[in-house]
Design a protein around this nucleic acid. Structure first.
Lengths: 366, 366
DNA sequence: TCAATAAATGTACGCGCGTACATTTTCTCA
DNA sequence: TGAGAAAATGTACGCGCGTACATTTATTGA
């Protein structure tokens, strides 16, 4: 015997929860009408509306998201894939917390909830499963890199037509939706700034080449040199993994070349700071430490001595835009005439923030 | 006419999705058996199991989480409430990202998904609604503070018997489940350390008193002084809001008292750094800047010059433990004999990390 | 060998909502 | 005033799973 006798209550945590049925009875209408009122669907008599709303209020009725999602076949969740960072923080937390804030802000605005998904570094994540399970309606991928498993996962996602968007990563030759900052420009501006100060031997501490933004930065670096007719000196190119430690390691490598280097551009602030500290610890006097420009304009840039010039990246906005776009895709895909909407590839401008670390010695003395 | 003719497919993103029915047909069993196999319920013939699994694999069948949640009446989501930080970051992001990592790690281990919930600073959040809507099965609250609306919300949550747990906030007289670090001890240790170095005029830059951890830190500070028979000098007590800026503001306030102060304890690293920088900018020579101990042992502590001594807080572990505990509550509440399980109030130990900033001048010269 | 029992599977229905379609009520305008 | 149209509401069913209960099949033990 499954049928409820009359009005029976569902219990959660010891407290009764009213359901649509009870509201309908109290308001003296059908359940469908209750639904209509709450979803504001179809023509409704004003008086009915009020009666239903009053009944709902009185009973403390709130529709179950679970049931709604099920009936609508949409979870209402926006997935956010993050690299799983149990202890090691390869990325600056600044980076993620800013992007997340942007994502959270826009998602809430659009009525979506944020489901956090942590990707293990080793095993690539099966994004498709998440859609098949209906856990998420759309998804934003952070910190992706050019990895075979990753790429395969994303390709399948695209094949199956699931709406997703990458932030800060471009896959060459793959028409993925991507939102990024213009790192070619950002890097170019940083180098340009140093050149303008009279520096010509500019070293470059880049991130891993598996990230497209690293490659973009290199492009910007090369372009700026080229425009000034400066030759590329490959011995001035270094690579770290975005950690402060890797900056310190780079410092050691640079040591023998320090005479040849009068300025350095780093691919993020943490490495730049590692570099600063590393050189200091190696006994380089402060006035011999090359001019420096970091990248991200994180909090940390203002914490060091000297304060670090840095390329500001609009992380918050990246997050916001990614959400907008991916939810647009979501909406479109529901319409029958799903035009194979063109690929979204957005590049936001960066901005150089100049602080003490990149001043030429001359201007410093003034 | 709603009935499906025979096997029709559900479509998502243009790709067909197999359902339990098709698996059942292919395996030649009933739908119930498919469910049993997948959930490993009841006695099952090994051969049947294999047949079903093979069929599921062949069809690429994945149960819909949506339907599962609905049938089970549990979302499988763990809510994480965070203060909504659109642009302003009152808390160090370090704090949150560490806790979140811990929460994420444990939640995944327990098979729960993380649903992020942002609380507006102004309007208190109606946590109950989230449970009523069945969006979350349990919830962890970060960055709560002693605010009337907040307290009321939490009280209702408790009344209605929803499992939740606070991290880093204690409500006096309310039997909430709480996981925290021992800030009395942490603060005590910091002061003790400074006293041991021979400092006796120790200023204290605390956080807002609306956070219980601020009050705990004050207790630790007072206790340490008392134990050394040092009188409390109220003019040495300052308050900031955890931001670097507020540290700089405190620097200004301390300026006239600088002769009376030979060491400072701050309630977090950001304020300590603001203080360091503020004093420097006010023209205080480095060797006149008081010894300093920060709190949190964030990344930033290693970035400053001199490096900042700091009280390490096991944020990651706080997150992990909170999840364990809150999910235990969850489990218990389902059993009929829900013993009014005692209130969980855990305090994890802190650890002082000593760096250059707290060395006495004497030991510095060595 | 045959009941008594246990194992294995099938049948049937609810979870709480959205919504297509059917029905009733109200309005419009000749 | 009455028919036709529009508005308002009701009826009925599915969404895809979990699971209580019923039924069938295999095992056991005297």
């Amino acid at each position: 015997m499954y049928a409820r006798t009359f009005i029976e209550y569902a219990f959660v945590g010891g407290i009764s929860i009213a359901s649509r049925k009870e509201v309908a009875i109290l308001a003296g209408v059908s359940e469908a009408t209750v639904s209509r009122v709450l979803n504001n669907v179809g023509p409704l008599k004003e008086e009915t509306k009020e009666r239903v709303l009053a009944a709902a209020l009185k009973l403390g009725y709130t529709p179950s998201s679970l049931a709604q999602s099920f009936a609508r076949r949409r979870s209402g969740n926006l997935g956010v894939v993050m690299p799983y960072l149990p202890k090691a923080r390869l990325f600056s937390t600044y980076y993620f917390s800013e992007i997340l804030s942007g994502i959270g802000s826009k998602a809430r605005e659009e009525g979506y909830d944020l489901l956090m998904l942590f990707r293990n570094a080793d095993e690539p994540m099966d994004y498709n499963e998440l859609f098949k399970m209906r856990k998420i309606d759309a998804c934003i991928v952070l910190g992706a890199k050019e990895d075979l498993g990753e790429l395969a996962s994303l390709r399948r996602l695209k094949e199956e037509g699931h709406p997703f968007c990458l932030i800060n990563q471009h896959f060459e030759g793959e028409a993925f939706h991507e939102v990024d900052a213009d790192h070619v420009e950002g890097s170019w501006t940083a180098v340009r700034h140093l050149l303008d100060q009279g520096f010509t031997r500019i070293a470059f501490l880049n991130g891993p080449a598996s990230y497209s933004n690293s490659r973009d930065r290199l492009t910007g670096y090369l372009r700026a040199l080229e425009e000034s007719n400066l030759p590329l000196d490959e011995s001035l190119l270094f690579e770290g993994n975005f950690s402060r430690k890797s900056g310190a390691v780079a410092a050691k490598k640079m040591l023998p070349l320090l005479n040849e280097i009068d300025a350095i551009v780093a691919a993020n602030d943490r490495m730049a700071i590692g570099l600063q500290q590393g050189l200091q610890e190696l006994g380089i006097p402060r006035d011999r430490i090359p001019a420096m420009v970091g990248y991200d304009d994180s909090d940390a840039a203002e914490l060091t001595t000297p304060a670090l010039s840095s390329v500001r990246v609009p992380f918050y906005e990246l997050g916001e835009i990614a959400v907008s776009k991916v939810l647009e895709l979501q909406g479109n895909s529901r319409s029958e005439i799903s035009t194979p909407s063109q690929v979204i590839q957005i590049k936001l401008p960066t901005e150089l923030v100049i602080r003490a670390s990149s001043k030429s010695k001359k201007s410093e003395e003034e």
